[in-house]
Amino acid sequence: MTTLIINDKEYHLPLQGHETLLEVLRDQLGLTGTKTACQDAECGSCTVLINKKAVLSCLTLACAVAGEEITTIEGLAQGDQLHPLQQAFLDHGAVQCGFCTPGMILAAKALLDKNPKPTEEEIRQALDGNLCRCGGYLKIFDAVKQAGENLAKTKG
């Protein structure tokens, strides 16, 4: 059995070795917030955090990250309370079709955890691996900036 720690919860799974983390999250655990799109490391829809860093789950073997800290979009809200990034995306109308949103939010979370007051260039660089086919980048950048300010206020 392989132990995966996802959103602070342990899952013991009979993995064979060749399953990608993307497949395990969606097909075995029902965590479908992580999206399948290009499956070719081009779009960032499958972004998750591993040990607080944004990585692509379509390029990650699930067995290779056993015991490491995996965060998916399902792990951000606390009950009914949205994460400040999720709230900022709603407030700024940064969600259109929503397909890229989980990846965008997780990539932004990795940035804000390190740097709560990023410049626009730093935001653009942190999200450079996430494509939005609706083209709503400016609102997304605004939302990330706002979330950083809100988080900084909360931390006081």
Binding site: A41, T47, K53, A54, V55, L56, Q125, L127, G129
Partner: peptide, 9 residues
């Protein structure tokens, strides 16, 4: 080189 998630990996 590539993008942020790729550079992380």
């Amino acid at each position: 080189l590539a993008t942020t998630p790729i550079r992380n990996m």
